[in-house]
Design a protein around this nucleic acid. Structure first.
Lengths: 412, 412
DNA sequence: GCATATAGTTCAGATTGAAAACTAATTGAT
DNA sequence: ATCAATTAGTTTTCAATCTGAACTATATGC
């Protein structure tokens, strides 16, 4: 349908097609096969198996695997016996001696975790910290300490850290490592010193938007295993979101798509902080729900706990506040589903705490405004909780490594 | 960020990375450079120039160009003199002896046109025909006749037709060539015999959605030259649309994205034919505008002419009907722009006839609901008129050819 | 103990682009 | 007119890489 991207090969673009590029592509193919095999438990791919699944010859796969083993990305893990006759193969797997770090700065806490190449979360630490209004330097220092502890532990366990991802609740510019605006932290135009976090990691640290990361975490480690096209709505102070299309995050032209919170759901609705009015956020943001439910001011976690209590005790103000949020969420989801041809909705962030009360309202609203587009069993609540963003940030780094293994290989 | 697509190379996927694939990629690179050069007028790329622009060596480019010339896709067009000293180069261009056909079936007419590889529309024929409720067979027979005339003319002019695209106002499944539903034609689940249209064309005929094609036509031959990320809204009987992101059409998971007409713009709005209510179409569809403006029943073109007259004469009912449509259009556009981070809006279809009256309403609404996102000078009216969809369908075919030149090459 | 089957390696052959040397054609200075 | 300088395009040699076929290695089962 469209021309290959960057086909022109102008200045600043990837190198033109050389014979070496074939090998790079095939290294990636082999790694992708290994990564895929992992979700199929009890399946121990061998060189011969990889050859069959990638379409390459056994000779090529042997050579590619040797290179990946040299680079430390792939490890042999004993014999693969299947009871059949013939010489047994050598089972291969993504090395668990290589890992990436996921990091998150949020309003009430910072956290970091170590994910090995196989996708297992080996370490996960959270540190409560009131970051709203704190200086970026001091928060980064705190985070750097946390990460350095994790790096030490990793090193003791013989794990080499290759890269990392940092999720921040705000609009970010990943290329420059700048937080353009993070209203809930009161940060604006802040260039973070990402180099401090993982100074030795060849892939460095990449900055991400928190809602997008949560959507990615959900994609790779949550409902994404079942749904391939969905709207992820993350309720935090504002209402963020992520669009997953064909099992990939749709990031938009400037990597900032997914602002569900400012879709117009009620033309005559109240003014919004964004300057518009009737935005979803004015009905489904934390402040909107809390005040409608009559929850007194306080910290977000205390108020959220209060809301849960009132919901559980059948308080009608709380129940109707949440139902109203769900109603408008359903309207925004209906429009999005129609516009982008999506078939599922996943609720994350604070909405996970309201699951049983908000889901029916969303389902009803979807049925009412876009019948037949999103079936009730495709409205789900995230099960990852607070770790979604961290998993997304780490997973993103993991995928960078698997997509560019040649940068670790002797040949460079 | 994500793994290379199809990296697994499983069944049904493109062949694995062989050394030959490098050449395929480079053939595409060279063609892409030539296609790009064409929008830079008075620029006659030579082999040496292509080498510099693709990053390939002169030797490789010579060999690639020879293959493309053999395949008939590229032609030498005399010497390229630039007044400098040194041996003059031989100017190259995409051959104007190869072409693709764009076709459209709409409610009131069918049309077809011939686009040469350089992007010039060489022939364009429209045939009035009331297709609503007609059998697909009879309409296809009519179209096949029109296309066969064009093919004869092309042949007389020495132009070889390589492929084609057919735009139909409805949801289509391109892979099976089926019209799932085209309400305005009263077609539903119709498998079109696309093979009849261009039996000799190696790339065959591909079925497209009309609104998407119009968006593509706009992208390649209209405002897309200035805007790279925009919402294209096409008013026909319903309200269709297309999302252009990074100068590419965003087609959605099943190629059916862009249903702007059924975004919810007024939760308490009237019922819609889709089963929902408050959809944009109930305010900005043809019937909504005509009845609100007090235009008596009749054929679409007569009513549209009537509306234009009333608008020109300052009729207040007409003016306010169009302003209302624009208001709600602006709301849908505001939500879309926020959700997908778009920065421009292009109005097509019947909205082009209402330009001066509807644009201000859209601009006002955008400023009201999403201030600072879409600036007023980035709300534009399409200038392509009725040919947008045809150009999009043809252009899409042209791009398939340029993206897979090796299928025409001796090596196959 | 040996036939059979499967895993993995080695080696020759083909394709391809890079690099450098070479031929071709034009300008401009002498 | 002649020739150096300059640019376009071709030819040649070389290295990288995959494929395919032959070969080695190691199991099972009769």
């Amino acid at each position: 349908m469209s021309l290959e991207k960057n086909a022109d090969g102008g200045p600043g673009r990837p190198a033109p097609g050389r014979v070496e590029d074939v090998r790079r592509g095939n290294l990636v193919r082999v790694l992708a096969s290994l990564a895929k095999a992992r979700s199929d438990p009890d399946m121990h791919p061998t060189r011969a198996d990889l050859a069959a699944r990638t379409g390459l010859t056994k000779a090529s796969v042997s050579s590619l695997v040797a290179e990946l083993v040299d680079a430390g990305l792939v490890a042999e893990s004993g014999a693969a016996r299947d009871g059949e006759r013939g010489r047994p193969g050598v089972a291969l797997e993504l090395s668990n001696r290589r890992g990436v770090v996921g990091m998150e700065i949020n309003v009430d806490y910072i956290s970091a975790g170590l994910l090995d190449l196989g996708g297992t979360l080996r370490i996960h630490r959270t540190l409560e910290s009131s970051n709203r209004g704190e200086s970026p330097e001091s928060v980064m220092t705190l985070l750097a300490g946390l990460v350095s502890d994790i790096a030490a532990e990793a090193s003791a366990a013989g794990i080499v850290i290759l890269g990392g991802g940092l999720a921040v609740p705000g609009l970010v510019d990943a290329t420059s490592g700048t937080v353009d605006s993070a209203p809930n932290l009161h940060w604006r135009g802040v260039a973070l010193e990402l180099g401090r976090l993982l100074p030795a990691a060849p892939f460095g640290t990449v900055l991400h938007n928190e809602a997008n990361c949560a959507a990615l975490g959900e994609l790779w480690y949550g409902h994404g295993l079942d749904f391939h096209d969905y709207l992820f709505v993350s309720g935090e102070v504002g209402v963020g979101g992520g669009l997953v299309i064909g099992s990939e995050l749709f990031a938009g032209p400037r990597g900032q798509a997914g602002e569900v919170g400012h879709m117009v759901v009620e033309p005559s609705g109240p003014d919004c902080s964004c300057g518009g009015h009737g935005c979803l956020e004015t009905f489904a943001g934390q402040e909107a729900i809390f005040s409608e439910a009559g929850i007194p001011p306080g910290t977000a976690s205390v108020r959220l706990a209060g809301l849960r209590e009132q919901l559980a005790s059948g308080d009608s103000a709380a129940i109707s506040a949440v139902a109203r949020a769900g109603h408008y969420l359903g309207i925004a989801a209906a429009s999005t589903a129609r516009l982008m041809n999506l078939s599922a909705v996943v609720l994350g962030g604070h909405f996970t705490q309201m699951g049983p009360w908000i889901t029916p309202a969303v389902v009803r609203s979807l049925a009412d405004y876009s019948p037949g587009v999103v079936s009730p069993d495709r409205v789900a609540v995230s099960e990852l909780g607070q770790s979604a963003a961290l998993l997304g940030a780490a997973g993103s780094s993991l995928r960078s490594v698997l997509a560019a293994p040649f940068s670790l290989t002797p040949a460079g």
